[in-house]
């Protein structure tokens, strides 16, 4: 397995912590089928260096992985990466994550180059027709309201440093909401990104966009095919709930892969001391059902747990995303095993 970029320098107060969907993105891009496709799309010694842009980089883990593992993913090391995020802290984090990962992985002679992290709304500052590979792990959770975009001033470090504790908490919560809240169908931000894709992709371009089940990926892909001349297909799927859709124009291209719709910042779910590291739990002794679903897909990210362990809502939702939803309570609780049903404890209601 290829190493995951180090994000230990990142403070997750306002930045989405790398989670299952992020890791699934890494697995999708470095899978044999996608790397073959990308290597053929951007053949070494024939095609100019591709520009890989990630929109909404967060910690930078996906873009850093793409840059550092460019040989495995593209069959070449001469790629350029650029990231955008509405949160300046995420841009600072991404710069460090990407440059460190390239330094660590590409020795003795690093070649992939992270050229910049820009504070920006989606693709707003990008030159038309310049992006070869676009990556987007959207805020895709359906929510009543879509958080507004931050202003340039709200990203001024001097402003947040001067805040009171409660103002800082509100500010952090606001920035965190931008990482997951997707408005109606969880699609409001993704729709804006899709609208921008024809303008920003190069003639050989491809976009990978994550959609979960509530986003109605089939409808979205149908809509894209309706643009005329575009292909949209599923590049990777982690289960029944969602996937990376790959969106492609005949020569141009777009794609994406499937993940699951359990994205909520853990901050809102479990107190910090009970936070789980990214990864999924499954109950020991119940491997026949769960492990057969999960382990081939997620490998090391599946962590065994025992009866009585506390699991978070997100983890339960994750299991639900793999087709075992009917047997799961949708709340935090202690895990117990009872005849293929895992009820939460008293908190399950």
């Amino acid at each position: 397995m290829l190493p995951t970029p180090d994000t230990s320098h990142v403070s997750f107060d306002t930045i989405y912590e790398p989670s299952e969907d992020s890791y699934l993105f890494l697995d999708t891009l470095s899978s044999a089928s996608e790397s073959k496709w990308l290597s053929e799309r951007f053949p070494k010694n024939q095609e100019a260096s591709p520009l890989v842009v990630e929109v909404g980089t967060g910690s930078g883990v996906v873009l850093a992985f793409t840059a550092a593992q460019s040989q495995q993913i593209f069959g070449r090391r001469d790629i350029l990466t650029l990231g955008t995020d509405v949160n300046r802290n995420a841009c600072i984090a991404t710069w460090k994550t990407a440059t460190t990962a390239i330094q660590t992985e590409q020795q003795p002679s690093p070649q992939s180059l992270h050229i910049s992290s820009l504070t920006a709304d989606l693709c707003a500052p990008l030159r038309p027709g310049s992006v070869d590979v676009l990556l987007f792990n959207p805020p895709y959770v359906p929510t009543e309201d879509l958080p507004r975009l931050p202003s340039a001033a709200e990203n001024d470090p001097a402003v947040s440093e001067a805040m009171s504790r409660s103002a800082k908490f509100d500010n952090d919560s606001y920035f965190l909401s931008l990482t997951y809240a997707g408005g109606a169908d969880g699609m409001e931000t993704t729709d804006r990104l899709l609208d921008a894709i024809p303008g920003v992709l190069s003639a050989r371009g491809v976009a990978y966009v994550l959609l979960c089940k509530q986003n109605r990926p089939d409808e979205v892909m149908g809509r894209i095919r309706g643009w005329g001349g575009w292909r949209a297909e599923t590049a990777g799927s982690s289960g029944m709930q969602a996937g990376w859709e790959k969106l492609v124009i005949p020569i141009p291209t777009r794609r994406s892969a499937h993940s699951q719709c359990g994205r909520m910042p853990q901050k809102y779910q479990t107190p910090p001391e009970k936070r789980f590291s990214p990864g999924l739990v499954w109950p020991v002794g119940h491997d026949d059902l769960v492990a057969s679903y999960l382990q081939p897909i997620l490998g090391d990210f599946v962590k065994p747990c025992s009866l009585g362990d506390t699991v978070s809502t997100m983890q339960l939702n994750w299991l639900a995303g793999y087709g075992v939803s009917s047997s799961l309570p949708c709340c935090s609780g202690r895990l117990a095993l009872n005849n293929h049903i895992w009820p939460g404890d008293s908190s399950s209601g």
Binding site: T84, R88, T119, L149, A152, N155
Partner: peptide, 17 residues
């Protein structure tokens, strides 16, 4: 668009959005 500590800020003020 201001560049600070190597990060350029392309978020627009409200009158330009």
């Amino acid at each position: 668009y201001m560049i600070k500590e190597g990060i350029a800020n392309f978020l627009l003020p409200s009158h330009l959005v």
